[in-house]
Design a protein around this nucleic acid. Structure first.
Lengths: 255, 255
DNA sequence: TAGATTGTTAATCGATTAACAATC
DNA sequence: TAGATTGTTAATCGATTAACAATC
């Protein structure tokens, strides 16, 4: 399921180029996945392909959009209009996929009343009214970490059932509420981990504690390193597509 | 490995509260993972715990920081100083973890020369010089999608070997270069998917094509739904910690 | 010693993928 | 028909986790 947005993006690109059909092999390459995996993924959605021919691009775009719920309008509120809140309010990728910014909210009187992305920033006091009136079910938290849980509680209390959390805090929510977290520094930390490994003189060597550990630990460390080594390392130098990670989805959404 | 930053964050919180030791059970709860998994993860790093007692918080913080390469300084360049570039330049989580913004770059003459987060925005022409002079190995791309590949190529050519990509494009890189992608709209799409499922009257029902499919497909769809259902749904209503996802790491960094 | 908790094993679970029959 | 490509099976691979011996 977490790969559907990837497929959709690749398919949209094909659609814009007016490509009528695509094979699992081609589409898999464009999305950076194994073709067998792609076919299996699509088989869960139904049989939308034609043997010997491939998949109809437009039809797949429609079916995946529908499956993802992108054919409907999703009002979202963004709470915390600092730099990141501003950036998200202006983020084009939201509107184009059915996400409509219902309101921008902030607790700071200095910010309230200003505009971002053409919308006025409103005070937190209006949160409940806005969520109710516009039937907002998705909230985006871009506050400082200290305020995140409180904001989360208010959103949930008001009726929001999905939260995208940019604050570096673990949020506690009641049953039935989904939380997805984006932590920008974690992504960098993972890159740094790999950089550190590259820096060693020996292939795969580093100055990590793992390398000074007793035999069995070193062996495990080497294994770990091999496993971790494949982040988004391209398979070959000649322009192989490296898709990297997608803010890690597969583990949480295994289907 | 991808969980180390999570553990580190939980440990840092404990450290600030001057908690001397922590059991795998407690730390696992704080990080939102299974305690057996946590112990296994730590066992790869070495034996840092004491049976009957737990783990020394400070020692673990140090070892994990070290393992992640956070004890050293990582200069990064941010290319594309729009809203998101601005937000990242100001993002506190970078500096606190050893990431230093070496330069902000943009191609737009109207932006070049302005300042963001106290740093001057410099022209793309200076990219190569900056990367070389400051030995930058990590580049952050916050350009529009159309410019991303070109920027990526220049970064790689200049010597950058890790790229954090915020542009909604699949980047092609040579062997040895790591790419991690953060796509903000994908996170929202996944939330929308779950929202759509919740909206149905029946538990787990929706108006998806899956529900109008023939028997075997419906069965598979139900299975998919069960699997996907667990995004970050809290295990219980009474304040169970929901950790959500972390921009999905585990799949790519399985160790 | 008794209680607690780690480190590790072994079982389980689920995801990935090669291979190929079905079929356009 | 011949070639191509899907849909699906079955094998493989790896991650998760319960359980418990080791040991503080």
């Amino acid at each position: 399921m977490a790969r559907l947005p990837l497929y959709l993006r690749a398919l949209t690109a094909l659609s814009e180029r007016s490509v009528p059909t695509v094979s699992s092999e081609e589409l898999a390459a464009a999305a950076g996945v194994n073709s067998a995996k792609l076919r299996k993924d699509f088989s869960y959605l139904g049989s939308y392909g034609t043997r010997g021919v491939g998949y109809d691009v437009e039809y797949l775009v429609y079916q995946i959009s529908r499956e993802l719920g992108l054919t409907q309008d999703w009002p979202v509120v963004i709470v915390g209009i600092g730099n990141l809140g501003h950036a998200l309010a202006n983020y084009g990728g939201f509107a184009s996929r059915g996400f409509r910014v219902a309101a921008l909210l902030d607790a700071d009187p200095a910010v309230v009343g200003s505009t971002a992305a053409g919308l006025p920033v409103r005070h937190m006091d209006e949160l409940e009214d806005i969520v109710t009136a516009q039937q907002v079910s998705i909230g985006v938290i871009t506050t400082p970490p200290g305020a995140a849980q409180q904001v989360c509680d208010r959103l949930v209390e008001a009726g929001v059932t999905s939260i995208l959390n940019f604050a570096p805090t673990v949020l506690t929510v009641p049953d039935g509420v989904d939380v997805r977290k984006v932590d920008l520094s974690i992504e960098l930390q993972i890159l740094a981990f790999h950089e550190q490994r590259k820096a060693g003189d020996e292939p795969g060597a580093g100055d990590s504690v793992l390398d000074r550990a007793p035999g069995p630990v070193r062996a495990a460390a080497a294994k770990l390193r091999r496993a971790a080594g494949g982040t988004a390392k391209a398979e070959q130098a000649k322009g192989k597509t490296a898709q990297g990670t997608e803010g890690d989805l597969s583990a949480v959404m295994p289907a």
